[in-house]
Design a binder for these strands. Structure first.
Length: 587
DNA sequence: GTAGGGTTAG
């Protein structure tokens, strides 16, 4: 203890004598007893340990340098404990540890991450009052805060103002922040303009800025443009890093271009960029989504072979893959496997399983798990509730579903569009279409009221509940609102007309929809053919059947059965018999 | 060698 104090005083003395605080600080820093522990925390962050260390540092006399406090709090920020970090700054302030522009910037960042960008700007004002001048990082942090709060327009305005008033000279980070904001709201072309602007100026874009745009292009389904930009940056001598490659691999996988994704993986390794756990997770997830969990398992083995540890994302993707195939036992095995490895499943992990149980109508297991995860301290989110609602409806318990929906709202969880789709669909299916309509009318959110999917559910529901007039009303309302009916809407309406015996209207709608650029699909044809068969309007059915087959659609199993059973044997020579013959041979 | 921006799961 005395040794350290003595050492500290000595270094200060040396520093003063040399009139160079930097050397003093550096010496103190390297011999500090806290230094080692901060370093340890940086490598293996633990909140409790960090807080303990902070207390010790705060009590130490003389207090450690602001440098070390900042380092420690940065560790806490990296752990996303923003509120904690802010509290620690407050404690430091109360103890009289001086603040700096650095601590201010970190505080502003914490407020921004907590979605309290207004407090960030308040701190900026304080900063001015105390005579500090904001740094480039201060402004970048605030711009990013606006982006995080989905206020990209204001972020861009702030950026423009900084340029216009020459308040700062933007660096790569600031450009990157703005480019990221533009991409986030889908203005990728504006982001590309800014990137081009950078290329022509003195602050050249680096891999970070290119990666943001490449990722955004991939998400905009413009993978080829992304590949072009990737080629361009390489030409300019900017080397792609693992994030660039991950974005491209993700983009290729999303559009079924797995072979190219595999080539990309090979390429990156050839140029010395090592794939990470994230790279493999992208592949694992892609395989799982397509239903080939076997390939996903091979990818997991491959990552393990390279010494990369599968994480909670890897296992959750695998579980989801198995659940999608209905292989819940396998999903349970994966869950047990990850827990044996001391990996904590999160709400997304459990959502896969709950959804799996619900889809398999094992509602009791789903209910049990729903309770169990809450006992473990996990909080069900809107997706958990959506799965439960669907499961409850499908297991024939609409009352329990309604109750669960009420509970969800009481907990302050906002239902999303899927919640309402599930709810209205479930209610209609249980002959509660009046209730469903009442609920729909009570919706206040404009966004929800303009969801064609909800209209489809209600129109279909009213029709099946024997209220075709209400279905027609809804369709008119939808058109009146200027919403665009999709193929499902038209298909349901065709079915509505047929059931009312208005076959002329049904056929007219079939032509109408195509004129409006909405192509009929296999379901549309099956619906209308079945209705004609029900009415024994064989000639009409025949014409449509030929039309659908010529367009590459085929009758579904019920249509096929109706054809077999209903076509009178007297019409052996009819084209429809030939079709049946052909189809029977295929089957 | 302390602060600000980019990739992965339902």
């Amino acid at each position: 203890m005395y040794y350290y104090i003595f050492n500290y005083l000595l270094t200060l003395k040396i520093a003063c004598r040399m009139n160079c605080t930097r050397i003093g600080l550096r010496y103190y820093y390297s011999t500090s007893p806290f230094n080692q522990r901060i370093l340890l925390l940086k490598n293996a962050p633990k909140v409790d340990d960090a807080l303990q260390l902070f207390d010790e540092m705060l009590q130490r006399q003389p207090p450690p340098s602001i440098f070390q406090f900042t380092q420690l709090i940065s560790v806490i920020v990296k752990m996303k404990q923003y509120s904690t970090a802010l509290k620690l700054f407050e404690q430091m302030r109360l103890m009289g540890v001086p603040v700096s522009i650095l601590t201010m910037n970190i505080s502003i960042n914490c407020y921004c991450r907590l979605n309290q960008v207004a407090y960030g700007f308040a701190l900026l004002a304080t900063l001015f009052k105390q005579g500090y001048s904001p740094s480039l990082a201060t402004y970048s942090t605030l711009i990013n805060g606006l982006v995080l709060a989905d206020r990209v327009f204001e972020a861009v305005e702030l950026f423009k103002k900084l340029l216009r008033d020459k308040l700062c000279d933007p660096d790569q980070v600031m450009y990157g922040t703005v480019i990221n904001g533009l991409c986030k709201v889908g203005h990728t072309s504006k982001a590309i303009q800014l990137l081009t602007f950078m290329e022509s100026g003195s602050c050249k874009p680096c891999v970070e800025q290119y990666s943001v745009v490449i990722d955004s292009l991939c998400k905009d389904k413009m993978v080829d443009h992304a590949l072009e930009l990737f080629a361009k940056m390489t030409e300019k001598g900017v080397l792609a890093d693992v994030i660039t490659y991950n974005s491209l691999i993700h983009g290729l996988c999303n559009f079924g271009r797995e072979t190219e994704a595999a080539n990309m993986l090979r390429d990156m390794e050839e140029v010395g960029v090592s794939p990470t756990v994230a790279t493999f997770n992208i592949l694992v997830n892609s395989f799982c989504k397509q239903g080939s969990v076997k390939d996903a398992e091979i990818a997991v083995q491959e990552m393990a072979r390279r010494g990369l540890c599968p994480n909670v994302i890897t296992y959750s993707a695998l579980m989801d893959g198995y659940c999608l195939r209905g292989e819940i036992d396998e999903a349970e095995k994966v869950l047990n496997g990850m827990m044996e490895k001391d990996l904590a499943p999160n709400i997304i992990t459990y959502n896969s399983l709950i959804n799996g149980y619900c889809k398999k109508k094992q509602i009791d297991k789903a209910r049990h798990l729903f309770q169990e995860i809450q006992d473990k301290g996990l909080i069900p989110d809107v997706i958990t509730y959506n799965s439960m609602l669907q499961g409850l409806f499908e297991s024939g318990n609409p009352a329990a579903a309604r109750e669960r929906f009420n509970k969800m709202q009481a907990k302050g969880l906002a239902p999303n569009i899927y919640t309402y789709r599930i709810l209205l669909h479930g209610m209609c299916k249980n002959s509660q279409c009046s209730d469903a309509l009442a609920l729909f009318r009570s919706l206040e959110s404009k966004e929800l009221m303009e969801d064609v999917g909800l209209y489809n559910i209600l129109i279909d529901g009213c029709n099946k509940c024997g209220k075709p007039n209400l279905a027609v009303d809804l369709f008119d309302k939808l058109l009146l609102k200027g919403l665009k009916p999709d193929v499902r809407t038209y298909t349901v309406m065709i079915s509505v007309h047929c059931q009312q015996g208005l076959f002329g209207k049904a056929k007219e709608l079939l032509r109408n929809m195509e004129e409006k650029g909405c192509l009929a699909n296999s379901v549309t044809y099956n619906v209308i053919v079945k209705e004609f068969l029900k009415e024994k309007a064989f000639e009409e059915a025949e014409i449509l059947l030929k039309e659908m087959i010529s367009r590459g659609f085929s009758p579904d199993s019920t249509t096929f059965e109706m054809l077999l059973n209903q076509i009178p044997s007297t019409r052996q020579d009819s084209p429809i018999q030939t079709i049946i013959q052909k189809l029977t041979n295929i089957k």
